[in-house]
Design a binder for these strands. Structure first.
Lengths: 126, 126
DNA sequence: TAATAAAATAGTAATCATTACTGATTTGAG
DNA sequence: CTCAAATCAGTAATGATTACTATTTTATTA
């Protein structure tokens, strides 16, 4: 049903080796270093398969692009609206999961993003 | 700098009168009941202006559409992957804000989504 | 190893949500 | 009222994502 694919492995490897929450195009650029003639459509298809399979998550930060993340543990994205960076912080407990369970909703994954201004951008004199 | 606009008021009113997290097109359909000849571009522009102004938030649930919500308070979206519904639950404290502050990040808004299966869809025999 | 069917690919074309553009209309201040 | 800035309706353009197709790769079975 699901065959091994060098391309899919490469896509997953790229995502596992970064904390930068890349877009599909950015993943494509990185994967090309491993498989130079891979096509963008293949990257999109494999990202979708990995997502459907629960191996990666999608992160939307409001910039019009879908971002991808191989870290499927419960964590929160701090997205700076000035420089566009996204860094991770890890809560002790996933409040979303907890509240979901309390109302009879079966939680499978959660994606949290906090928008604001990062430390570096605060220090820059505008 | 920013003039009154009947169209923008109508867009905001539609969003404030629903809990269904509509897409831009769905907002457009509703606003047309108030202003029949409003154009889709106007809806998009006003949604962007309201967002930039902090009056509404964007909610991404992984279906390829941007959803909008006039509830800017800290809350969590429970998105059912079967029926596509999104309902809100309200945490006592916003863990994201708390963690952000602890690392020197200035939080302005947070958007959390938990993906899973809602109570109704659990009861349906597949 | 050879044969075969299912799965996956590269490359390209098509889709469609969203954005940009333009000339006309509306708003708010003096 | 007058004028400039803001906004609009309508339409065209953009561009991220998806779909399609002929070819190649994978996994299985003999």
């Amino acid at each position: 049903m699901k065959n091994f694919s060098r391309q899919r492995e490469a896509v997953l490897k790229v995502l596992k080796n970064t904390k930068s929450h890349p877009t599909a195009t950015q993943v494509y650029e990185q994967v090309k270093k491993i498989i130079p003639n891979i096509s963008l459509g293949t990257v999109y298809r494999n990202l979708a398969e990995l997502y459907d399979n629960g191996e990666i998550i999608k992160v939307s930060v409001g910039d019009g692009f879908e971002h991808f993340d191989a870290d499927t543990s419960s964590h929160i994205h701090l997205h700076c609206k000035k420089c566009g960076s996204t860094v991770d912080v890890y809560p002790d407990t996933d409040i979303g999961y907890k509240l979901a369970s309390e109302v009879g909703f079966i939680p499978e994954r959660s994606v949290c993003t906090v928008y604001g201004i990062c430390k570096k951008c605060q220090q820059k004199h505008s």
